[in-house]
Simulated assay, not measured.
Amino acid sequence: MNNRIKVLRAERDWSQQALADKLGVSRQAVNAVERGKHDPSLQLAFDMATLFGQRIEDVFFPEKKSDTDNNEEN
């Protein structure tokens, strides 16, 4: 899942640690979500969106499939 966490965080001049503290999670958790290495729980995704004053779909969005993912072998 892609997200705008890094951009939204930078707009507020928040470090990953500052965001983590506001959310009650570890900095490593914020880093993993921000880099797309871990999908947040639904609750964490809502908490992040709320904290940024955004709708969840404006913060998180699905990865686009590549053309090779869409081709089926017959």
Rank of each mutant, 00 (worst) to 15 (best):
M1A: 04
N2V: 10
N2L: 14
N2Y: 14
I5K: 01
I5V: 14
I5P: 02
I5Y: 05
I5E: 01
I5L: 08
K6F: 00
K6L: 04
K6G: 00
V7I: 10
V7E: 10
R9C: 10
E11D: 11
R12M: 05
R12V: 14
R12Y: 15
W14A: 01
W14D: 00
W14Y: 13
S15F: 00
S15R: 07
Q16Y: 07
Q16E: 12
A18V: 14
A18Y: 07
L19K: 00
L19S: 07
L19I: 15
A20W: 02
K22S: 06
L23E: 03
V25S: 01
S26F: 13
S26L: 09
S26C: 05
Q28S: 13
A29T: 09
A29P: 02
A29L: 12
V30D: 08
N31F: 03
N31Y: 04
A32M: 05
V33I: 15
V33G: 00
V33K: 01
V33A: 00
E34P: 14
E34I: 05
R35L: 13
R35G: 00
G36H: 11
K37I: 11
K37A: 03
H38E: 12
D39R: 11
D39I: 02
D39G: 08
P40S: 05
S41C: 08
S41D: 13
S41V: 02
L42V: 09
Q43L: 06
Q43T: 06
L44N: 08
A45P: 02
A45L: 06
A45W: 09
F46D: 11
F46G: 03
F46P: 01
D47M: 07
M48A: 02
M48K: 03
A49L: 14
T50D: 11
F52K: 01
G53F: 00
G53C: 04
R55P: 00
I56P: 12
E57W: 07
E57R: 11
D58P: 02
D58W: 04
D58S: 14
F60I: 10
F61Q: 06
P62M: 14
E63C: 04
K64H: 07
K65N: 09
K65Y: 15
S66K: 01
S66L: 02
D67Y: 10
D69V: 15
N70A: 09
N70T: 12
N71A: 13
E73I: 03
E73M: 07
N74V: 05
N74I: 04
